[in-house]
Design a binder for these strands. Structure first.
Lengths: 101, 101
DNA sequence: TCGCGGTATCACGACAACGTTATACTAAAC
DNA sequence: GTTTAGTATAACGTTGTCGTGATACCGCGA
């Protein structure tokens, strides 16, 4: 429960999700991710480091470039599952509102 | 992506997961959750409020007690999916270590 | 060897979330 | 109507995370 919370935290930042989203298409170097997301280079580097430490993404230096890629695409399944569940929760929020009005 | 991150944030706190875990067995009032988790009453109240606003949990006053219950048990499926993916990531962390040593 | 593009890190300020203590609210019992 | 158990909220200090700007590092080509 401790570790699970920490794992969820990895996906709880919009910019980090944007970085992941960019890597959905495959392997990209840092600059490519920067361009795909519109985030600053320093910020992208930080998020990529976090994702690497989390074991979600792999770092592969190639010459002077550094490529990153999602290791196990099961994370995208996780994202999809969460998004689906989010829809359910949204509906419940509406129901709760309706019960009040 | 914005909203999805926010949704992940709901599950990114150990104590909140503990509260959810307690509600796995069904409907409980606040005091029961407090006893099940060992958290302070004020803290449990806060987390329950958050979970309610998030549309994950439903509040049902009954007399002077207030019962809470998970609305859609699909969240537990989400937790299970995340836990499974966590295992994968853990393995990748080990692999990364091994590549260094 | 020097310069340069690409990447990583540092130091910092801003801000949000957590947990606690104390207190307010509410409904039932007396 | 007062008390009491259960629940919610307020105020506060602490801590962690985010994003930025500046700078360091690294590999390569001139």
């Amino acid at each position: 429960m401790e570790a699970l919370a920490e794992y969820f935290k990895v996906f709880s930042e919009p910019n980090r999700l944007a970085v992941l989203e960019a890597l959905h298409q495959g392997s990209l170097n840092v600059t490519a991710v920067v361009e795909a997301t519109g985030l600053s280079q320093a910020l992208v580097s930080k998020h990529l480091k976090l994702l690497t430490i989390a074991g979600v993404v792999r770092r592969r230096p190639e010459g002077s470039l550094v490529y990153y890629e999602v290791i196990d695409r099961g994370v995208f399944r996780l994202l999809a599952t969460a998004e689906k569940q989010l829809q359910v929760s949204r509906q419940q929020q509406l129901n709760a509102l309706q019960a009040v009005l």
